[in-house]
Simulated assay, not measured.
Amino acid sequence: MTRFDAATDTERRQLFAEAITAHRKRDSEFLTIEPDELPPESTEELTPWIQFSDTTVSMDCTDDELDRLKGLLDSYPEFRAESLESPEEAEGTHAEITARSDANRLAMFIDEAFQTVYGYESTYKAWVVAI
Rank of each mutant, 00 (worst) to 15 (best):
M1Y: 12
T2Q: 10
T2F: 06
F4K: 06
F4Q: 08
D5C: 08
A7D: 13
D9P: 12
D9M: 10
E11N: 07
R13G: 01
R13C: 03
Q14G: 06
Q14L: 11
Q14H: 04
L15D: 01
A17P: 05
E18I: 00
A19D: 04
A19K: 03
I20R: 03
I20W: 02
T21G: 07
A22M: 09
H23P: 03
R24Y: 06
K25E: 13
D27R: 15
D27L: 12
D27N: 14
S28N: 11
E29T: 14
F30G: 05
T32D: 08
I33E: 07
E34T: 14
E34V: 14
P35D: 15
L38F: 05
P39Q: 02
P40V: 04
P40W: 07
E44M: 06
E44R: 06
E45P: 00
L46C: 10
T47Y: 00
P48R: 00
P48F: 00
I50D: 06
S53V: 11
S53R: 15
S53M: 12
S53G: 14
T56E: 06
V57K: 01
V57H: 04
S58H: 09
S58P: 02
M59D: 00
D60S: 13
C61I: 08
D63S: 14
D63T: 13
D63N: 11
D64S: 11
D64R: 11
E65T: 11
L66F: 12
D67L: 13
D67H: 10
R68N: 11
R68W: 10
L69A: 09
G71A: 14
L72S: 08
L73T: 06
L73D: 03
L73H: 06
S75Q: 15
Y76D: 12
P77C: 05
P77M: 07
P77W: 06
F79Y: 12
E82Q: 13
E82M: 13
S83Q: 15
E85Q: 15
S86L: 04
S86C: 12
P87R: 13
E88Q: 08
A90I: 15
E91M: 11
E91F: 12
T93H: 08
H94S: 09
A95L: 10
E96Y: 06
E96G: 04
T98G: 11
A99D: 03
R100F: 10
S101G: 10
S101A: 15
A103L: 04
A103Q: 07
N104P: 04
R105A: 12
R105M: 09
L106G: 01
L106P: 02
L106Q: 02
A107E: 03
M108R: 15
I110M: 07
I110N: 00
I110H: 00
D111W: 06
E112R: 14
E112G: 04
A113R: 02
F114Y: 09
F114D: 01
F114C: 07
V117W: 02
Y118Q: 05
G119H: 07
Y120F: 12
S122W: 07
S122E: 13
K125D: 02
A126I: 04
A126G: 12
A126F: 05
A126H: 05
W127V: 07
V128I: 11
V128H: 03
A130H: 15
A130R: 15
I131H: 10
